[in-house]
Design a protein around this nucleic acid. Sequence first.
DNA 1: GCAGGTTATATTGCAGACAATATAATTGCC
DNA 2: GGCAATTATATTGTCTGCAATATAACCTGC
Lengths: 151, 151
Amino acid sequence: MAKEYPELHLDNQLCFSVYTLSRLITQAYQPLLKALGLTYPQYLALLVLWQAEEEGSLPVPVKFLCEKLLLDTGTLTPLLKRMEVNGLVVRGRSSQDERVVQVNLTEAGLKLREQASKVPAEILCRTGLDIAQGEQIKEELSALIEQLDQA
Amino acid sequence: MAKEYPELHLDNQLCFSVYTLSRLITQAYQPLLKALGLTYPQYLALLVLWQAEEEGSLPVPVKFLCEKLLLDTGTLTPLLKRMEVNGLVVRGRSSQDERVVQVNLTEAGLKLREQASKVPAEILCRTGLDIAQGEQIKEELSALIEQLDQA
DNA sequence: GCAGGTTATATTGCAGACAATATAATTGCC
DNA sequence: GGCAATTATATTGTCTGCAATATAACCTGC
């Protein structure tokens, strides 16, 4: 008779729910973003850059993007290079400190914001998600993120 | 004066919380799983196989794993091949239906379950997550997953 | 100033994810 | 029986993620 391991059942694991939901969300965004020539992580990077533009803090160092997105340069450097090839951003060494690479939006990258501004509402519409509920879950997840990000 | 796009701010997006939390969770598992010679998706695949073993339903078709994990063969085929190389599973065509590839656990793959059974508790301990809270969030996320998986 | 540590970014290599396409086996239908 | 549609898996190509390592520029103490 096989001993049972309920703690190892997939359904019991929060980790699996988060992992799956994350991929499903990316898949939900994908067709909308493809129309804008973007991938999902590229879209997230643009969110940071657009907000920096509103706050008058462009250009921003790569390190700033790393911290906001919790991604390292092994991910962001090639991603930003692809976005540069696509004409959305420009990258250049700072003259103050030759170590830092400043990332700035191009005209095209800035202009994309208007089309992108319709994306969040469209996602909610397509997925039929409840906004208020989403807001609450977001708060709960943010607490978990903070906890994990420390450790 | 720059027009503002609050709907495009990173902090406002549930999607970003889920995306980040998913990566942080994977990172939390990583050192524990590395000690077992596993990656996180490989661990998830084993969860399915171990449960199938308990239920006496081994071997299982690749399609079964695809449905449980919500992953396609483009991800699972190479993953299962790596696990086969590592001696955890064996793959073979069904004689009833030559299209289906049956996946079974090896002795080593089965034996790994005992060490892995300590992983979930260890994760909770290390991350300091609240179990009861996690349980509730899991239910909420599962509802979202079902919603997205339909669409 | 300069040696040693720190910082910011880049590079390499590997393992997912997934869209798109391909292929072989099975099934259904007439 | 035979051909079209379906099914199960595989393959290819691109883009993440991330550990590990490398490198050049900065900073610090002495």
